[in-house]
Design a binder for these strands. Structure first.
Length: 795
RNA sequence: GGGCCCGUGGUCUAGUCCGGCUAUGACACUUCCUUGACGUGGAAGGGGUCCCCGGUUCGAAUCCGGGCGGGCCCACCA
C-alpha cells in the first residue's frame, strides 16, 4: 500500500482520470456481458453554446444514478449524443459565422453548418467529460449524422403508414424572425406593454367603436363580433361595417365567445391576429385575408403601408386614424403575448402547408401512458398530464429552414405524396429524386428537431438496425431530464414510444429542478447573474461541483451558492487527509483478520452497516441527496471526529495497548475507509478513484467505479457494541465540554473521571479507548453524576 | 381563472408520506484549542412563535379545514 502525497491536486487528478477512463473504456457498455442491463436515455445536449450550470446540475444527478447502478454490478448502457440538428444549432452557426441562413444559398449554408458543427463538437463534449459523466463516449451520436437522419426518416415513414402524420394547409404559429412554423410547445409567454385602441368603424353613418391592440391588422379584418345577448349591439344584426382607412365592408356577427366586458364589447376578427380569430374564422367560414409576409412585413393588402414592419405599420396606422378622428381613445395596457422561445419574437399566424403528427385524437392514450412510468418526483406527472389535456393543436413538425433532417417526401404533379423505400434512406428530396423518377417536386422543409430527439431511446438502442439491444431494452430503465422540457421532450418521446412500439419509452423518469442565483432568481444573460460551470470546475474541481449538485432532491430548484461548492471542496480535502492518515497507519498492515475485534471497532462497523443499507435504498429510490447526506455525516462526524481520534492511541502505542488492539483497529480502519470511498464514489468520482488507486486497486485497470458497491452485512450489526459506542461518545462529549469551558487543550489530562455507576457495565469494555481519547488517568464508577477534574494548568 | 410545489434559527435546508427522541446539517456568529491526517482543522456555545388561525389527538413541524405569502406550469392576448 502506497502512502498518499501530502497534497491532492484536483486539476491534475481530474484531467488524468478523465483521460484514463476514456482510454481504458471504464464506462464502456459490454454487449456480450450477462450482467443485468441498466439503460439510460441520456439527454443529448443541444449544441447551442457551452455547457451551463443547469446542465452540470441535472447531468450530475443522472450520473449519480448511473454510477450507483454500475457499482451495483449492472451493465450500464449510458450513451452520449449531441442534439445538433435544430434551430438552436442553426442559430449558433448564424451567430458564430456571421451569416443569415435564409439569405444564403442552401448548399453553401448546409456545408458551412455541418462544418461548423464538426468544429464545435469536440470542445463541447469535453465539458461533459470533465464533469465526470460516466457515459460511454466512445461513439457519441449526433442527431444530424447520416445514421440518425436515416432513422428519423424511417420513423416518419412509419408514422405515415400508420396514418398518424398528415400534411395540411392551415393557419399555423409562425416566427417571422426565424421564418418558420413552430409548435405550441415552443411558445413562451411574455408580458408586454401595448395600447388598447378604440377605433371607429362606420355602418350606415352610425359610429361603432371597436377596441383593438392590433390596428395594423385592420386590412385583414374580415368581420366584427359582438355577444348575442349584448343589448347594445342587437340592432347591428345582419348589418355590415366599413373598415376605416381601408374602406371595405365586413359583416357584423354574433358569437358567444365574445366577452361583453372587454373593450367595447365589439371586437374585430382578422386573419389572423390570434387563436380566437382562427376559431371564429373556421366557425363562421369567413374569407381569408392575408396581410403579412413570412418575414413579418405588411403585404399588398396593406396598400400604402406595404413593406413596413408590423411595428412600423402599427405606428403609421394609429397616426392616420388619429388624424382622421377615428382613434378616439388609447389606453396603455400590459398583456401576455406569445413569443418564440428561441428569439423572443412575437408569434404570428400564417396560413401555410405544414406536416403534423396527430396528437389531439390520442390524448387519452397519451395521458394513460403516464401511469406506466414511475415519475421522480411523483408530482411531475401532473405537469405532463396537464399539458396533454390542454393541447390545442396537433404537433407541427415541419420547419422552413435549410439546416435539419429533410422530409423524405416528394409531390407529384397531381398533388399525390411520394415516399422513398426504406433502403433509399436517408434522402434529401431538395436535390434528389426517388429511383426511376424525374418528375417530382421534393419537399424542402426539414423536420422539427424534436421529431428526431423524440426517438432518443430508439436511436441509442439501434432500433433502425433492428438489433437485439433494442428488443431487449425498450422500454429503457430511466429518462433523466429537467422539468422545463416535460411538454416537449418527455411528451414527444412518450408519444413516439406509444405510436411506434405501443409502449412507453422508459420505466422511470427522473426530473431535475433548475439552478437559480443566490437570491432565488432565474439565471439569465439579461440579468447578468450567470455562473459558468467551467469557472467553478476550474476553481474548485468537478467533484466539488457535483457535491453541490447532490445537495438538492429531484425536482427541487437550487440557488447556486459558492459556499456550498466550497463545502464540497473541503470535503474533498478532508477525504484526502483522512485517507492519508489511515493509509499511514496501515503501512505495516498485512491485511490479516484479527482474532477478536474491539467493541469500538464493532461499533463503527455496525454503524456503517446502517449507512450502507439506507444509502442503497435511497439510491434505488433516486434519492441521491439523502444518500449523500448520510455518508457525509458518517464520514465527518462518526469516522473523522470520533473514530480516528479514538483509534490513534492503539495504533501509536501498541506496546501499551497490545498488538491485537492495533490489528483490530487496522482491520476496521481499512474496511471503513474502503467503504466510505465507495459510498462517496458516485458523487465524487475523481477523488475516490485517486485514493482507491493508491490504496486498494489491484492494478492500473481496477476502478472503484465498476462493481463493488458495499453490501449490507447483517453479521456486522451489533446492538451491544452500538450501545457501548454511543455511551462512549456521550462521556467523551462531556469531557470535551469540560475542557472547552476551561479553555484548555483537548489533550489536557483528566486526573479524576467519575462516571455514574449505572454506566459501568456498558462502558467498561471500551474503557481503554475512553481513557485514551479523553486523556484520562483515572476512571471510576460511582454515584449518579459525572465528575471531571482536570490537571492543573502548566503556568 | 385552472393545476402543482413550497413556507422550519441571519441564509440555504433535513425531517412532513407513515404524528411521539433535546427539530438535522451546511454557511455565518461567539469563545476556546495550534494535538504526531487535516487550521480548507478540532471543541464548546448563542440563536427557532417549525407562516397564521382553527380542528382531530394523551401528544401536531408532521394529519384535516380555512387563511396569508412566495414560486412554477397552463389558460387569458380582441
Amino acid at each position: 500500500m502506497q502512502p498518499l502525497p501530502k497534497k491532492y491536486d484536483f486539476r491534475l487528478a481530474e484531467r488524468k482520470w478523465c483521460k484514463a477512463w476514456d482510454k481504458q473504456g471504464t464506462y464502456a457498455f459490454d454487449p456480450k456481458s450477462d450482467k443485468p442491463v441498466f439503460s439510460i436515455d441520456t439527454p443529448p445536449p443541444t449544441v447551442s453554446g457551452k455547457m451551463h450550470l443547469g446542465h452540470s446540475f441535472s447531468y450530475a444527478h443522472e450520473d449519480f444514478i448511473a454510477r450507483f447502478h454500475r457499482m451495483r454490478g449492472k451493465n450500464v448502457f449510458y450513451p452520449f449524443g449531441t442534439d445538433d440538428n435544430g434551430l438552436a444549432t442553426d442559430k449558433l452557426v448564424e451567430k458564430t459565422k456571421g451569416v443569415n441562413a435564409k439569405s444564403t444559398k442552401r448548399e453553401a449554408y448546409l456545408e458551412l453548418a455541418h462544418r461548423t458543427v464538426q468544429e464545435i463538437l469536440p470542445d463541447f463534449i469535453e465539458d461533459w467529460k470533465m464533469l465526470g459523466m460516466s457515459c460511454d463516449f466512445s461513439s457519441p451520436y449526433s442527431t444530424i449524422s447520416t445514421a440518425v437522419q436515416k432513422a428519423s426518416q424511417k420513423g416518419f415513414l412509419e408514422l405515415y403508414e400508420k396514418g398518424l402524420v398528415y400534411r395540411k394547409e392551415t393557419p399555423v404559429s409562425w416566427c417571422p424572425q426565424c421564418q418558420t412554423a413552430i409548435a405550441q410547445a415552443e411558445f413562451e409567454n411574455v408580458d408586454k406593454t401595448s395600447h388598447f385602441n378604440d377605433i371607429v368603424f362606420k355602418a350606415k353613418g352610425k359610429d361603432m367603436v371597436v377596441a383593438t391592440t392590433r390596428p395594423e391588422l385592420l386590412c385583414a379584418c374580415v368581420a366584427l363580433f359582438y355577444h348575442p345577448d349584448d343589448e347594445r349591439y342587437q340592432s347591428l344584426k345582419g348589418k355590415f361595417a366599413r373598415v376605416p382607412l381601408f374602406g371595405y365592408d365586413v359583416p357584423i356577427l354574433a358569437d358567444e365567445t365574445v366577452d361583453r366586458e372587454k373593450g367595447t364589447g365589439l371586437m374585430m376578427c382578422c386573419t389572423f391576429g390570434d387563436k380566437e380569430d382562427i376559431e371564429k374564422w373556421y366557425k363562421h367560414k369567413l374569407p381569408l385575408k392575408v396581410s403579412i409576409t413570412k418575414d413579418g412585413r405588411m403585404n399588398e393588402e396593406a396598400g400604402k403601408y406595404q413593406g413596413m414592419t408590423l411595428k412600423e405599420a402599427r405606428k403609421a396606422i394609429r397616426a392616420d386614424l388619429e388624424a382622421a378622428g377615428l382613434l378616439i381613445k388609447t389606453k396603455d395596457i400590459t398583456h401576455p403575448v406569445n413569443v418564440h422561445e428561441r428569439c423572443g419574437t412575437d408569434i404570428e399566424f400564417l396560413n401555410t402547408h405544414q406536416w403534423f403528427i396527430n396528437v389531439l385524437d390520442h390524448k387519452e392514450e397519451l395521458i394513460e401512458a403516464a401511469d406506466d412510468i414511475r415519475w421522480h418526483p411523483e408530482h411531475m406527472k401532473a405537469r405532463y398530464i396537464h399539458w396533454v389535456e390542454n393541447l390545442n393543436w396537433d404537433w407541427c413538425i415541419s420547419r422552413q429552414r435549410h439546416f435539419g433532417i429533410p422530409f423524405p417526401v416528394w409531390y407529384a404533379e397531381d398533388g399525390k405524396t411520394v415516399l422513398p423505400s426504406e433502403e433509399e434512406l436517408p434522402v434529401d428530396p431538395s436535390d434528389q429524386q426517388p429511383k426511376g423518377r424525374k418528375d417530382l417536386v421534393g419537399e424542402t422543409d426539414v423536420l422539427d428537431t424534436w421529431a428526431t430527439s423524440s426517438l432518443t431511446p430508439q436511436l441509442a438502442l439501434g432500433w433502425a438496425k433492428g438489433g437485439e439491444l433494442f428488443k431487449d431494452n425498450f422500454p429503457m430503465d430511466v429518462r433523466p431530464q429537467a422539468h422545463d422540457i416535460i411538454r416537449t421532450w418527455a411528451f414527444y418521446t412518450i408519444t413516439r414510444g406509444v405510436y411506434h412500439e405501443k409502449k412507453v419509452p422508459w420505466k422511470n423518469i427522473m426530473i431535475s429542478g433548475f439552478v437559480l442565483d443566490p437570491k432565488g432568481n432565474k439565471m439569465s444573460k439579461s440579468r447578468g447573474n450567470v455562473v459558468d460551470p467551467q469557472d467553478v470546475m476550474d476553481k474548485y474541481g468537478a467533484d466539488a461541483l457535483r457535491y453541490w449538485a447532490a445537495g438538492s432532491k429531484l425536482g427541487d430548484d437550487l440557488p447556486y451558492m459558492e459556499k456550498d461548492v466550497q463545502t464540497g471542496s473541503k470535503t474533498v480535502t478532508k477525504l484526502w487527509n483522512a485517507s492519508r492518515f489511515a493509509l499511514m497507519q496501515l503501512a505495516d498492515y498485512d491485511g490479516g483478520e484479527p482474532d477478536e475485534l474491539l467493541p469500538v471497532d464493532k461499533w463503527i462497523l455496525s454503524k456503517l452497516q446502517g449507512i450502507i443499507k439506507e444509502s442503497t435504498e435511497t439510491y434505488e429510490a433516486y434519492e441521491y441527496a439523502k444518500s449523500k447526506s448520510l455518508i457525509d455525516n458518517f464520514f465527518w462526524n462518526t469516522f473523522c471526529d470520533y473514530y480516528l481520534e479514538i483509534v490513534k492511541d492503539r495504533i501509536y502505542n501498541p506496546e501499551k495497548r497490545g498488538v491485537g488492539a492495533k490489528l483490530s483497529a487496522q482491520y476496521t480502519l481499512r474496511y471503513a475507509l474502503r467503504t466510505i470511498l465507495k459510498l462517496f464514489a458516485p458523487i465524487m468520482p475523481y477523488i475516490t478513484e485517486e485514493i482507491y488507486g493508491y490504496a486498494f486497486a489491484k492494478d492500473g485497470r481496477d476502478s472503484i467505479h465498476v462493481n463493488g458497491w458495499p453490501t449490507f452485512d447483517n453479521g456486522l450489526v451489533d446492538g451491544t457494541a452500538e450501545e457501548a459506542g454511543d455511551a462512549l461518545l456521550e462521556v467523551v462529549n462531556l469531557a470535551r465540554k469540560k475542557k472547552s469551558e476551561a479553555s484548555v487543550s483537548l489533550r489536557t489530562p483528566i486526573i479524576k473521571f467519575i462516571i455514574p455507576k449505572k454506566l459501568e457495565k456498558v462502558l467498561k469494555p471500551v474503557e481503554d479507548d475512553l481513557k485514551a481519547v479523553t486523556n484520562a488517568e483515572d476512571i471510576s464508577y460511582e454515584g449518579k453524576v459525572v465528575f471531571i477534574e482536570l490537571a492543573p494548568s502548566k503556568q
